[in-house]
Design a protein around this nucleic acid. Structure first.
Lengths: 235, 235
DNA sequence: GTAATAGTGTCTTTCAGACAATATCGA
DNA sequence: TCGATATTGTCTGAAAGACACTATTAC
């Protein structure tokens, strides 16, 4: 084994980096798409808003770390959709030293106010169009942009819109999700036909609700499929 | 700052892990989808086939590391499409110690034989349906599965099929890509109409080729768009 | 001429979007 | 009754899949 055999050798200590998870948590509140941010109470970027997150512990999987941080900083837990977004690792993205961050996209039904994290920093839901990218810590503005893009795209070809809804929901609630995420109005009648005809997207519970006034609506649960075919188009 | 304020503090040395990039490199050879694997010449998994990859150096970005490994182990470089696939970090995925691996998906035109890596390990193209998942090193079987799924999905709604083709190519060459990746026959006439009508997918060069016998075919270059609308459907 | 591949046209069915019409509640 | 929302139906135009047909080369 030559000194050139770097790629396969055990890495020396100077090739080890801090590894963190960051969470891009979306929900719908008041018909608007909102993102969870926490206010940093220590340097760097003290006082700036940042994504919730933290370092990965030695014995936990990456997804576990994401779930743990989600629970610690929001009180949210099971029932929240969590998927990997991307990994950010520019050498200077963290002034404290090289840090690799695995970003996760989380979609949550409208929850109560977020609980303060264990570090007592302030956590708050922000409408996405009220977030000032320039003031965010680290490269979190970029991560949020990527998360938004992913969420918007996923509504088209996956049943993830339902992840923003409670376990049982109406077609109108689901439509409100799509309208909030895409920022555009959708025809209620065509939307209704599309989602109820999309095989496996929704399963009717048989129960009805009249919580919204007007004619009572059928309640649905999330179906079993992972890919919408045909997709729910945006236009 | 309490000891509980773990999430925001600078991480101690025991919270640093090795960080690697692994490459899922696909190409089309002999009308079949092929994957580049290297034979490991040192433990662990000595003698097993693995994805090309290596550790991230202190001053390079993650994408740079992926490009460097690609060049070192394949001789490939510019002109290869490279995108992040996912990050794998199960605590025990590497018996040498905790290693976080950022996997990249690379799509390459049919190239010459891969050059031997700088560590002289053997590199070889494998038809994807000839790969024995059970014999692969680490969790690479899973990574390959994820890469395959991503590649298959991306052909539908992105112009990435062209990443498997040389800079100038015919519709038939592009169709061969789709057929290899999807493993199914496509009607040449409908395919031709779909891709040439898809706005921004292909730009004709004006030149023709008769390399395949029969009527000469128009040559195209990759267009400028990133998303196909409408998508190229699979059925 | 034949064989092979490239490319166009045409038919049918399916589906998306616009929007009328009907259904079922509360007040 | 009206106002609100839910749900179904109907029409039209666009697009997909099947496949006949024409075009242009090599031999």
């Amino acid at each position: 084994m030559t000194p050139m055999n770097r790629a396969k050798a055990t890495p020396p200590t100077n090739l080890r980096y801090a590894v963190a998870v960051d969470l891009v948590v979306f929900t719908i509140r008041d018909r608007r798409l909102c993102l969870l941010l926490v206010e940093r109470d220590i340097p760097p970027f003290q006082g700036a808003w940042a994504l919730p997150g933290g370092f990965v512990l030695p014995d936990e999987d990456l997804r576990e770390a994401a779930y743990r941080e989600l629970a610690e900083e929001t009180g949210l837990g099971s029932g929240v959709h969590l998927e990997q977004l991307a990994t950010y690792g520019a050498p200077t993205r963290d002034p404290r030293g090289r840090t690799i961050s695995i970003a996760w996209l989380a979609l949550s039904p409208d929850a109560a106010e977020p609980v303060a994290g264990s570090d007592a920093s302030r956590a708050q839901w922000w409408p996405v169009d009220h977030i000032d990218s320039a003031t965010l810590a680290f490269d979190h503005a970029r991560i949020i942009t990527d998360g938004l893009e992913r969420a918007r795209a996923k509504l088209e070809y996956s049943p993830l819109g339902a992840a923003f809804c409670p376990p049982e929901f109406t077609v109108a609630q689901l439509r409100a999700v799509y309208e909030a995420v895409w920022g555009q109005h959708l025809d209620p009648r065509n939307f209704h036909r599309k989602v109820t005809k999309s095989p496996g997207f929704l399963t009717p519970t048989g129960a009805m609700t009249n919580a919204d006034g007007g004619r009572p609506a059928q309640l649905y649960r999330r179906g079993v499929i992972d890919v919408l075919n045909p997709p729910i188009t945006r236009s």
